[in-house]
């Protein structure tokens, strides 16, 4: 059976760059958008906004806790602040502030964590954010989005600006494979079925979405029909998509560049356990990585289509 859609998966813009460029565009149309950055604007790409709107850009220095507090105060006074740094720093160092000053009153702060996962590469584990999804999802009221490519990132940034409430959006360092040809059709709490399939479902966020497509192409050649769903909205989760996957395909693999404990997999499992139990397998990280090129690290730490494929075979064996 031919695949429902063909994906070339060409290398596109890094999601962090899509974030930075979208933010600068937003600045032109929305005067309430302001940006805070912690001495990483050339890396998080908020420098595009800083150059265009210097009066709305707050350089906070290497002080993430204060940056989150500044953003909260700006939000309380009616601004739409985007606070950005490496995910490892803004989420971990700013966590207590995100909890008490942002989540608890439910302020309209948009946190964008870049250089997430292990694909930051050579800088090593101190800069790698592998717990950010777990931490952000633990904050009541936060929406947590992890888009896979440039257009979906652009859509998520615009959604965050247009939706009142706290957001965490995860971006990556390397060039992201192009999946979408339009920024339409994204929603907070949504998901995107990228390939139709009946035998099992592969769910992912971020760069693992493309790996799932590659795995599905291999499975298709073997006569196995894999559904692929981009679960870019980790919280709120598209529960209906999860229930349909469980009921219609009877087996689910969740793949993510994050700790397997506490990530998308755990959230999907919760829905599956409540609504329609079925075999599940997980492709995720189990601990801290090391320095290396992004490709070397993704190979060594099991973030490839081959790892998704192995999990798919395992879950299919359990299903039958």
């Amino acid at each position: 059976m031919p695949l429902s859609t063909t994906y070339e998966l060409k290398a596109g813009m890094a999601t962090r760059e899509a974030f930075g460029r979208t933010l600068a565009e937003l600045g032109k149309t929305n005067p309430h958008v302001v940006v805070c950055d912690a001495d990483l604007s050339k890396s998080t790409m908020t420098h595009f906004f800083a150059q265009a709107f210097p009066e709305r850009f707050f350089s906070c220095g290497i002080a993430e806790a204060n940056m989150v507090g500044i953003a909260a105060g700006l939000a309380a006074a009616g601004k739409i602040p985007f606070a950005s740094s490496f995910s490892a720093f803004v989420v971990n160092k700013g966590f207590e502030q995100l909890r008490t000053v942002v989540a608890y009153p439910g302020l309209n702060v948009k946190v964008v964590g870049t250089h997430s996962g292990i694909s930051i590469g050579e800088d090593g584990p101190s800069q790698m954010s592998i717990e950010d999804i777990a931490l952000a999802c633990s904050l009541p009221g936060f929406a947590v989005l992890s888009p896979a490519d440039e257009l979906s990132m652009a859509a998520c940034i615009r959604l965050a600006a247009d939706t009142v409430g706290p957001f965490f959006i995860r971006a990556g360092r390397p060039k992201a494979k192009i999946i979408y040809d339009s920024a339409d059709g994204f929603a907070v709490g949504g998901s995107r079925e990228l390939l139709a399939g009946a035998d099992l479902t592969l769910m992912a966020h971020g760069l693992m979405v493309a790996e799932c497509i590659l795995a599905a192409q291999t499975l298709d050649a073997e006569g196995v029909s894999a559904r692929v769903v981009d679960m870019y909205s980790i919280k709120p989760l598209d529960r209906d998509a999860v229930v349909r996957a469980a009921r219609e395909t009877g087996a689910i693999v969740v793949a993510e560049e994050h700790l397997a404990d506490g990530g998308l997999g755990v959230r999907v499992s919760q829905v599956v356990a409540q609504e329609s139990p079925c075999p599940m397998e997980f492709v995720g990280l189990s601990g801290y990585a090391e320095s290396g090129t992004p490709d070397e690290l993704l190979d060594k730490y099991g973030m490839r289509a081959s790892n998704v494929l192995a999990a798919a075979r395992k879950v299919l064996a359990r299903k039958s």
């Binding site: 507090g69 500044i70 953003a71 000053v101």
Partner: peptide
């Protein structure tokens, strides 16, 4: 430890 940051965000917005 958190109030001054918040106050400064409000002040910057004003």
């Amino acid at each position: 430890g958190q109030g001054l940051s918040f106050a400064l965000g409000m002040g910057a917005a004003a």
